[in-house]
């Protein structure tokens, strides 16, 4: 029953989301683009960082690479190929970065990825100012907001399916084993570096594509916009809120937080970062393993206590 039901619900949800642009106004579509973008980013982030516990702040590095690839080549490469190009560049960077960094653990990895995003931004800025002669670029592409929405929906669906498939596949088990104990993982025959690199590459390519698909929305791009570190932080906090180790976790985190921050930036633009910070702190203290794990634990505790109480009453 459940086996048939879940795919049916999934298809229904995707179909309903695909129908949204026909009924929503332009603000609704804009909102949908932002939300789908963050759902995809958070799911892709959790794909790698959830099981390996490598907290990556390189999200915006790849997002920005995607956006900038589109900006730079928008007039020379036809549109669908443009996305392929962006994905390929993202893949190349991910493989190089992955190869050199995956032996860094803990705090060093966090800081490396953060530094990487800043380094790329600085280099792009320098290149644009000194070589290209402009700081910003205009993107004129015949892509409608609805088109962007549907592309992102497709990417989000694919990302979700990849995440679902990984969770049930050998590589998913390998990731769990690595997350628990790398020494045991290696002695079980798992090639740790290869598994991590593969996941990092998949996750990075998806993130690059989100940046590439969203880029035409901006019309005007400059490094400060495309490489805004807040994107990394938001992605991280969304995945953590929902629970980075669950299939649905990143989605459950991304939707409410996106809406919250959308509302905040409209109503309290000056207090935005204070509230972002407080949410961050609250999640670390109250829900360190995410809403889903929290709910599950309490549900179990509740279920465990109720039946135990019954016989005591009967006696």
């Amino acid at each position: 029953m459940i086996r048939l039901l879940s795919p049916a619900i999934f298809l229904a949800v995707v179909a309903a989301l695909a129908y949204v642009p026909f009924v929503a106004d332009s603000y609704g579509v804009t909102l949908g683009i932002g939300m789908l973008g963050y759902v995809t980013l958070a799911t892709a982030w959790a794909l790698f960082s959830g099981p390996t516990r490598y907290v990556s702040l390189a999200t915006v590095a790849f997002f920005g690479i995607g956006a900038y690839t589109v900006a730079v080549f928008s007039e020379t490469i036809p549109y669908p190929l443009l996305l392929v190009t962006a994905g390929a560049i993202g893949l190349g960077v991910a493989v190089v970065v992955g190869f050199s960094t995956l032996r860094l653990a803990g705090v060093y990895f966090v800081i490396f990825t953060f530094g990487l995003a800043e380094l790329i931004r600085q280099l792009v800025t320098w290149y644009e100012v000194n070589m290209a002669g402009t700081l910003g670029r205009y993107i004129f592409l015949p892509v409608t907001p609805e088109g962007i929405y549907w592309q992102l929906l497709a990417l989000a669906t694919i990302t979700f399916l990849i995440s679902w498939w990984i969770g049930r596949s050998r590589i998913g088990l390998a990731l769990k084993v690595i997350g628990d104990d790398e020494v045991v993982a290696a002695h079980c025959g798992i090639d740790i570096a290869r598994v991590k690199l593969a996941l990092f590459a998949i996750s990075s390519v998806i993130i690059t594509l989100v940046g590439a698909i969203q880029a035409p929305r901006w019309t005007y791009v400059e490094p400060v916009i495309a490489f805004n570190p807040t994107i990394s932080f938001l992605t991280l906090i969304m995945a953590l809120l929902g629970g980075a180790n669950r299939l649905m976790g990143p989605i459950l985190g991304a939707v409410p937080l996106f809406l919250l921050f959308e509302w905040l930036s409209a109503n309290f633009p000056n207090h935005y970062s204070i509230i972002l910070g407080l949410v961050f702190i609250a999640i670390v203290f109250v829900l360190p393993r995410g809403v889903l794990a929290f709910a599950e634990e309490n549900w179990k505790r509740w279920r465990r206590t109720t039946p135990e109480n019954l016989p005591a009453v009967a006696e």
Binding site: L173, A174, V177, G179, D180, V184, C188, G189, I190
Partner: peptide
């Protein structure tokens, strides 16, 4: 974080 059976499957799978 795995079940007992999954602990053994880890070694079977890889």
């Amino acid at each position: 974080s795995l079940t007992v059976a999954e602990n053994v499957i880890a070694s079977l799978a890889f």
